[in-house]
């Protein structure tokens, strides 16, 4: 493994800094009013001024997201294995799942509110509903792409379906699974914030809605920044997990520079 060149390691910071600088100068140069698009420095000030509220609500959003995501991982894994296991289950469930996935989850929030009231639970469930699909599809794909020759080798030795699943299928679908976690965690945040901005008194989604009602535009943006930070942190965590668990699947030297 060669050491990553300095420029590549610095690139994320440099690009982000460049983005913020362009934003700052564009807002100042074109004299864009603060209530339309606040400059990054103004957003930073709002972030500082409303720090306690942002921290409290971010924590709530994070909790809701993680519980929903956890449910999605458990349920998605089970369903993915079931679909990969049996062609009948696959044929039966697939249209249902595709149809379900096509429903905009925002349309489900009112129903969830009807059942569970407002607050924590609908946010968790929206996060869950929006993020389980990619996990199911990826786990099932991993299982479906077992080489038939590999299956023959093991079957000829008297391997049961469970043996093949344990020795080949599950390890094989792990890279797909961990890959899908990165997508799922991002979607889970989307779900939580949707639900919070419709039916909650807490969370970043609600905070932004309140800020909008009071025309505190810098605070809206501060909320976005808080979400972005949480999103990046969780994505990073998932990427790290993926690398640790399935290093064998990532050896391509593509796009090294």
């Amino acid at each position: 493994m060669t050491r990553t060149p300095l420029i590549v390691r610095l690139a994320p910071w440099l690009f982000t800094l460049g983005f913020l600088l362009i934003w700052e100068f564009a807002v100042r140069g074109f004299k864009i009013p603060e209530f339309f698009l606040p400059a990054p420095t103004i957003v930073a000030k709002a972030f500082y001024d409303f720090w306690p509220a942002i921290v409290r609500n971010s924590w709530i959003t994070l909790q809701e997201t993680l519980v929903g995501f956890g449910l999605a991982v458990g349920f998605g894994l089970l369903l993915g294995l079931a679909i990969g296991w049996s062609r009948t289950i696959y044929a039966g469930l697939y249209p249902l799942m595709v149809g379900f996935n096509a429903i905009p989850k925002v349309a489900l929030v009112p129903i969830l509110v009807l059942w569970f009231g407002i607050g924590f639970l609908p946010a968790v469930l929206t996060a869950f509903l929006i993020s389980f699909f990619p996990i199911v599809v990826n786990v099932a794909t991993g299982l479906a792409t077992i080489e038939p020759e590999m299956e023959d080798v093991l079957k000829a030795l008297g391997a049961s379906k469970l043996d093949i699943m344990r020795k080949v299928g599950i390890p094989r679908s792990l890279p797909y699974f961990f890959g899908s976690l990165k997508i799922a965690i991002t979607l889970a945040f989307v779900g939580t914030v949707i639900s919070e901005s419709i039916a909650s008194n807490n969370g970043i989604g609600n905070l932004m809605l309140q800020a909008q009602a009071q025309f505190q535009v810098p605070l809206i943006f501060a909320g976005l920044v808080a979400l972005a930070i949480e999103g990046i942190a969780m994505y990073g965590l998932m990427a790290m997990l993926e690398k640790r668990m399935t290093g064998w699947a990532q050896r391509s030297g593509f796009a090294q520079n």
Partner: peptide, 27 residues
């Protein structure tokens, strides 16, 4: 019977030695 095909069909998450031991985990 033992079988081998045109594709080596080795499991990429196992070392060569662990790949060899796979049939013994089955048969």
């Amino acid at each position: 019977a033992g079988m081998a095909f045109q594709a080596p069909t080795l499991l990429p998450w196992r070392t060569t030695l662990e790949n060899l031991l796979l049939p013994l985990e089955i048969v």
